[in-house]
């Protein structure tokens, strides 16, 4: 019953998508293991993220999906006890090689967090700050406008660009955070449960936005909401206890899962 319902919502998003092999992977994890102290959070994961598609990472709480996501732009560097084995490549380059500057990595691979985290600055400054510190010398007003338009926030805030970002609603703040990431013109945007702190209306807006953006960017989204994964993503990776159980086109993962655990999870029987 549940599976049928999910299928209906999936079909709209996945109708024109080619198979994984059609586009070359932009990010890939090879035999990736991440430990916090002794406790492994991600175990021997191999996954290839296709370019200009939305890839969802789903799985029960504590399965390592956020840890895997953070490995893609080296945000795990800030968790002191995290240890990484195996590799992550971005367009063929090893992100964990000795001479790689994590700052450069994050300029190309942006991130949107679980809770909206606008800076305590004006709306415009929130957008222009990232490009400014990275040497942007163009027209700041244009940059702000473009980013806000891409994030479908422009019409709501165009008259109060100099007001504090903290005055916005939660959903607006999250779209501002997306706009902030977009202003960096990244290659990839990682989203870590971007809607978990938002109401259903704001969630729907963010999902629409992701659908708009996937023509321009590669998006990887971690979500605990299976309906959301089914609605927005082209590909789905299912993680359980740190291991990649299944990876494939979203429609296939949700309708004809190859693994019994995936089937149980998407059917809502655990997790």
């Amino acid at each position: 019953m549940v599976t049928v319902k999910v299928t209906e919502t999936t079909s709209a998003a996945a109708v024109t998508q080619p198979s994984p092999s059609a586009s070359p992977p932009i990010l890939a994890a090879q035999d990736l293991t991440i430990r916090y102290g002794e406790k492994p959070a991600v175990v021997s994961v191999n996954v290839a993220i296709p370019e200009n598609r939305i890839t969802a990472i789903i799985g029960p709480s504590g399965c390592g999906k956020s840890t895997l996501l953070r490995a893609f732009n080296r945000m795990n560097d800030y968790i002191p006890e995290a240890r990484i084995d195996g590799g992550v490549t971005y367009r063929g380059r090893d992100l964990y090689a000795e001479n790689v500057d994590p700052v450069e990595v994050r300029r190309r691979i942006g991130m949107v967090f679980q809770k909206p985290n606008p800076f305590p600055k004006s709306i415009a400054k929130n957008i222009s700050w990232g490009p400014a510190i990275n040497g942007f010398r163009g027209d700041e007003r244009l940059l702000v406008e473009e980013a806000l338009k891409k994030a479908v926030l422009w019409d709501e805030v165009k008259d109060r660009l100099n007001e504090s970002a903290n005055a916005l609603s939660g959903g607006q703040q999250q779209r501002l955070c997306i706009a902030r990431a977009l202003a960096m013109e990244p290659d990839v945007i990682l989203m870590d449960e971007p809607c978990s702190a938002l109401d259903p209306v704001s969630t729907a807006r963010i999902e629409d936005l992701m659908y708009e953006l996937k023509h321009l960017y590669t998006i990887v989204i971690v979500t605990h909401n299976m309906q959301q994964a089914a609605r927005v993503s082209d590909f789905t990776a299912f993680l359980d206890a740190g291991r990649l159980v299944e990876f494939g086109e979203t429609e296939q993962v949700f309708t004809t899962p190859k693994d019994k655990r995936t089937e149980d999870y998407v059917a809502g029987r655990f997790g």
């Binding site: 700052v103 967090f113 809770k115 985290n117 305590p120």
Partner: peptide, 27 residues
């Protein structure tokens, strides 16, 4: 200052010094 603010700034490709001076100190 909430950790989320610091991580948000770092995720935009800011160095630790830029994060400290331009985000954390104002906050």
């Amino acid at each position: 200052v909430p950790e989320s603010l610091r991580l948000g700034a770092l995720a935009l490709g800011a160095t630790r010094f830029e994060v400290t001076v331009q985000v954390l100190i104002p906050a």
